[in-house]
């Protein structure tokens, strides 16, 4: 996608956000996080705090490490054989690399939504019920039904699918699939939701629905979202972090970043000089 020039760009900021300050408590924080792929260092010591009930957007040119960094927060980088993470990441003050904290438990607390909608090749119901079943969150069918229903409701999908919960999740449209994946993530009641370019595979209408949804969810979750779309960052986030070549260049309130960037690289990027 072409980056619009400054003149053509119309940033729309959500003014509600400005009036409601972040609730203050730090949910997760990263201290001097480095990620290596084999011998190559992909992230060079990043520090960042995620606050409760706040949306942080990660922006930056492709290959800048924003997705890699996002995946550190629930140790998804563990699934890549050659990837290695150093530094400290705290969830409610506890190191997530601590032996005592199980990665299973961590991921139940820090959920993730991926770039491409990836519903399991199962029914819609089973897709949502998967997580609660795994973690043994429910004892009986009616509790599970309730979780499925509330999760779908909160993901704004309930009305559309309530009559076909048994049909395969892969049969939904792209936007619906992505909302299904969000519903699947919130079904295990995480505290943080990581979203890795959740709208990049969707059309504009589906995107706007997801964006509205993110706004709704922020009341109950801490959200970090990677996006290549600056308008999206401007629309949904309270704070924006700009990454470049594996470094966190700048993090600030979204309006500040877009109107008054401190770093020349940030300015070059948001004005479309590279990226």
């Amino acid at each position: 996608m072409e980056q619009p020039t400054m003149g053509a760009m119309q940033m729309t900021f959500d003014d509600k956000k400005e009036s409601k300050p972040a609730s203050g408590a730090i949910k997760m924080s990263a201290r001097d996080v480095k990620v290596f792929y084999g011998d190559a260092e992909a992230i060079h010591g990043v520090n960042m705090d995620l606050y409760e009930n706040e949306v942080v957007a990660f922006i930056g040119p492709s290959g800048c490490g924003k997705s890699t960094f996002l995946r550190c927060f629930n140790r998804m980088n563990d699934t890549i054989d050659i990837a290695r993470v150093t530094g400290e990441i705290l969830l409610d003050g506890q190191d997530i690399h601590d032996k005592k904290l199980d990665v299973v438990q961590l991921r139940a607390q820090v959920g993730m939504v991926f770039q491409k909608p990836n519903p399991f090749p199962k029914s819609i119901y089973e897709n949502i019920a998967y997580g609660p079943r795994l973690h043994g969150l429910v004892d009986n069918k009616s509790d599970l039904d309730e979780i499925v229903e509330t999760s779908l409701q909160r993901a704004g999908l309930w009305k559309e699918v309530k009559d076909r919960l048994d049909s395969p999740g892969t049969g939904l449209s792209g936007g619906q699939q992505q909302r299904l994946c969000i519903a699947r993530a919130i079904a295990v009641s995480p505290e943080v939701i990581l979203m890795d370019e959740p709208c990049s595979a969707l059309d504009p209408i589906a995107t706007s629905i997801i964006e509205e949804l993110i706004d709704e969810l922020k009341g109950s979750f801490t959200i970090a979202i990677v996006t290549h779309n600056m308008q999206q960052a401007a629309r949904v986030s309270d704070k924006t972090a700009f990454f470049h070549l594996g470094d966190l260049v700048e993090i600030n309130a979204t309006r500040e970043i877009f109107t008054n960037p401190q770093d020349s690289r940030t300015e070059d990027y948001i004005t479309g000089r590279f990226g």
Binding site: M76, Q105, R107, K122, Y130, R184
Partner: peptide, 27 residues
């Protein structure tokens, strides 16, 4: 079986064997 499918399951906190038995094998 696409990696996205595995990631989806692991991201929810499933263990590797749960991912294999409940997602990869059915797929």
């Amino acid at each position: 079986v696409p990696k996205a499918m595995r990631d989806g399951s692991l991201g929810l906190g499933a263990t590797k064997s749960e991912t294999i038995r409940k997602v990869v094998l059915p797929a």
